[in-house]
C-alpha cells in the first residue's frame, strides 16, 4: 500500500490513542516488555490530560528507572538511592502549589530508603509516591530485594529465598497504609489493558487529592523484570499473576470514603 492510500484511509478515521506529548521522543532504555516504561507513560498521560505539565515535578530514583527524567517531559530531579521521598518532601514544602511525585523501585523504596519511606508517609507529606515492585534489584543484576518472594531464585538467592537467612517478603505498602499520614494507598499493576486503565484512575485520583492537600498518596505497581526473572515478557506477566498477586494482591488498601 502506498503512503497516500494509507493517509486517505486514515482520514476516514479518528485517532483514539497516541503516545502522550508529555513523553520525550527518546527511546526507552528498558529491556523489552519491562513495566517501568508503561508506568512512566501512564503518569505522563494523566499529567497531559489534567493539563498540569508546567506544575508537575517528579523525583527519579536509583535503579533501572534512574533515567526516568530522560523520558518524562516535566521538571525532574534525581535523588540519591532511596532518598526520593525526602527530596520530594523538600520540593513540595518549598513549592506547595506544584504536583510532586516520587518514582522508586523496591530496592530503592523498601531497602535502602525504608526510613525515608516510612517517615515521609508518617509526616503525611502531600506528595504522590509511585512504587514499582518487581521483587528484585533489576539494575544491578537481579539480586534479592526485601520484596523477593519466598523460594524465588535471584542471583543472591540461587537456591531460592529462605526465611531462615533472609526473613519474610516485606509488605511495605500495607505498612504505610497503617500510618495516619497516608490518605490513599493502593496496589495496581500494568500487565493487562484493564490494569493499565485502573492505574491511570489511581494516579488521577492521587493528583486530585494532592490538590486538596489530603496527605500522602502511595501507589504500588506490581511489575515485572523479564531480564532479572529470566523469562520472556509474556511469561513474566503470567508468572506475576500466579506468584506475585497471592502475596501482593491488587486493589485499594486504604481509600477515602
Amino acid at each position: 500500500m502506498g503512503q497516500d492510500v494509507v493517509d486517505a484511509a486514515l482520514e476516514q478515521m479518528e485517532c483514539v490513542y497516541a503516545r502522550p506529548d508529555t513523553l520525550t521522543d527518546t527511546r526507552f532504555h528498558y529491556c523489552p516488555g519491562c513495566g517501568h516504561s508503561v508506568v512512566h507513560r501512564v503518569i505522563m498521560e494523566v499529567v497531559q490530560e489534567a493539563g498540569i505539565r508546567e506544575q508537575t515535578i517528579g523525583v527519579a530514583p536509583v535503579g533501572c528507572s534512574v533515567f526516568a527524567y530522560n523520558y518524562m517531559d516535566v521538571d525532574m530531579q534525581e535523588a540519591a538511592h532511596g532518598r526520593a521521598s525526602a527530596v520530594a518532601t523538600g520540593i513540595k514544602r518549598v513549592l506547595p502549589d506544584r504536583f510532586v511525585f516520587s518514582y522508586q523501585g523496591d530496592g530503592d523504596l523498601a531497602a535502602i530508603g525504608t526510613a525515608e519511606t516510612i517517615h515521609t508517609c508518617n509526616r503525611g507529606e502531600n506528595i504522590l509516591m509511585v512504587f514499582v515492585n518487581n521483587a528484585i534489584y533489576g539494575m544491578t543484576g537481579g539480586q534479592m530485594a526485601p520484596t523477593t518472594l519466598l523460594g524465588m531464585k535471584t542471583s543472591t538467592s540461587p537456591a531460592g529465598r529462605t526465611v531462615e537467612t533472609a526473613g519474610f517478603p516485606l509488605k511495605i505498602t500495607e505498612m504505610v497504609a497503617m500510618l495516619p499520614g497516608t490518605y490513599y494507598v493502593t496496589r495496581q499493576s500494568v500487565h493487562t489493558p484493564n490494569a493499565v486503565r485502573q492505574l491511570k484512575k489511581a494516579i488521577t485520583k492521587s493528583f486530585q487529592y494532592q490538590k486538596e492537600r489530603k496527605g500522602t498518596c502511595f501507589i504500588e505497581v506490581v511489575s515485572n523484570c523479564p531480564s532479572g526473572w529470566k523469562m520472556t515478557p509474556v511469561q513474566s506477566n503470567a508468572w506475576l499473576v500466579e506468584n506475585m498477586f497471592p502475596l501482593y494482591p491488587p486493589g485499594d488498601i486504604k481509600a477515602p470514603k
Binding site: M13, E14, V16, Y17, L23, C34, V38, P193, P233
Partner: peptide, 21 residues
C-alpha cells in the same frame, strides 16, 4: 476494532490507534 488494548500495554509507547468516525 480500534479497542486500544495493544497501545495500553505497549511498554515502548509505539502504537497509535485509529477508529472509524
Amino acid at each position: 476494532t480500534g479497542c486500544t488494548n495493544c497501545a495500553l500495554v505497549c511498554p515502548d509507547a509505539v502504537i497509535t490507534v485509529y477508529r472509524e468516525k
